[in-house]
Design a protein around this nucleic acid. Structure first.
Lengths: 250, 250
DNA sequence: TAGTATAACTTGTTTAAACTAGTTTTACAA
DNA sequence: TTGTAAAACTAGTTTAAACAAGTTATACTA
């Protein structure tokens, strides 16, 4: 998330975001005009607008033609502590900065069969690593997941690497960063494995996240199904113009 | 979703999307180069790149510097029929083109109290409409939701309007289109109301979507909590570079 | 005073051009 | 034939300028 920016627009984006978070520009304030900010940052209007656009996409601001750019970041709502009803959340754990302890439950090399091909879209016969992993923090288990990694892309995977971060391995060792991930979230009834590993309390249903990940060059190299502990699960999303994709099952 | 584009970049975006969907450019193909497409569409490189960027944000393509733009839209995966395991889904129902039948269960005008203020971020005392609605298709109920609309923004709301589309009313009558929606998805145990209205089968937990919506001018005017029928719920998301925001509850 | 036209703002769209930084192809040399 | 350097691609960043289309403030008129 907080990567050192090597672009002008990214550093302007980062700076404006900081100024918003530090309440220089408060909730429902207007940002200074483009003309003004161009002077502040000594950049072209295009570059500034690119930064603003990213702030909009991330739910920090909202532009209105003729009026200005309004701050809609509400520290009360999202300052690393989202209140939802009587509960409060923190500790964001995204794919890139996972603090999870990982236990490898199964590590295998298989070929995609017909059934797996249908759900994963991998062609039948594709050699893949098949891995089951348990993700935990302290003594609490949060996620049980099954990964299928294309062996052509993720070469020479070992249990040790699977215990650490496969994404770090991909990025640093193989120089194959992921570029896009498509994600489907559904609710499913907990199976025996979920009951065994996750503390389900009285819940009998859990969130299931299915991931399809692509490398730089457009190859779908990963199919992963994650079963999450329901009472600890939260998904956050902000959307400027695009409609949400809630769907209905047949 | 499929709005008539009045911009050049939107029409180029729409056209390229069609050409991808109609298999002129297939999964893992490269699009023609920017230079080539600029000639095809008789536009500037900037305008073309804007269209491509949108295609990328929507999960259709992926750009790689030095190489080209690769199609990652897989009709098998997403051509209005997403296969997930043994189930198949269709009939996308997003906020803008809802085909739901709406039954108003409760329609009231209240002022925000301390408890509601904490979850909604509306200031205490704010006059709001408090509405409970049931969303269904045919004889199947899909969603029970509670809406809180700021009366200052959503003026003179009636049960009839609530039965139709409040968003249409906002957009067409009050000329106040929503610009941004922030969304939190959690899993909760089903309450009596959920059991009464939704066909929960053996599920005792359901997806709960909390919406915070903003008008054009940055006012948060809506707080909504939706309880979904679990077996019919699916959330789809594609993400280019930004990390997902899965979080863990405290 | 009240209403209205205008000017001075605001952001949105589009084009053009120069440069940077990767990748692939070509051509030449060993 | 193989290896490497150069040329010809590819997309990414940044600036500049002109115009369109909204909103707000100003100033003038009735």
């Amino acid at each position: 998330m907080d990567i050192i920016p090597n672009n002008k627009y990214d550093s302007i984006y980062a700076d404006l975001k900081n100024r918003i978070k530090q309440d220089e520009f408060q909730y429902q304030d207007k940002l200074p005009s483009e003309t003004n900010l161009v002077l502040q940052y000594n950049c072209s209007r295009n570059t500034l607008r690119r930064a603003i656009k990213k702030l909009g996409a991330d739910g920090y601001v909202q532009s209105v033609r003729g009026k200005g750019v309004i701050v809609i970041y509400n520290s009360h709502l999202e300052n690393d502590l989202i209140k939802n009803g009587n509960h409060s959340f923190s500790q964001m754990a995204d794919r890139n900065k996972i603090k999870f302890k990982t236990t490898v439950l199964l590590f295998d090399e298989i070929e995609v069969d017909k059934k797996l091909s249908l759900e994963s879209t991998f062609p039948i016969g594709t050699p893949v690593y098949y891995i089951k992993r348990l993700r935990s923090i302290g003594s609490d288990n949060y996620i049980v997941e099954e990964n299928y990694f294309m062996r052509k892309v993720v070469k020479d995977l070992t249990i040790n690497i699977a215990q650490d971060s496969i994404y770090k391995y991909l990025k640093d060792v193989l120089n194959e960063p992921i570029a896009t991930t498509k994600r489907i979230l559904t609710i499913g009834l907990a199976n025996e494995q979920d009951k065994k590993y996750l503390d389900l309390k009285t819940y009998n249903a859990i969130p299931i996240v299915t991931n399809y990940s692509f490398t730089n060059d457009g190859t779908m190299f990963e199919y992963t199904v994650s079963h999450h502990r329901p009472d600890k699960f939260i998904f956050y999303d902000q959307n400027e113009t695009n409609p949400v994709s809630f769907m209905l099952k047949n």
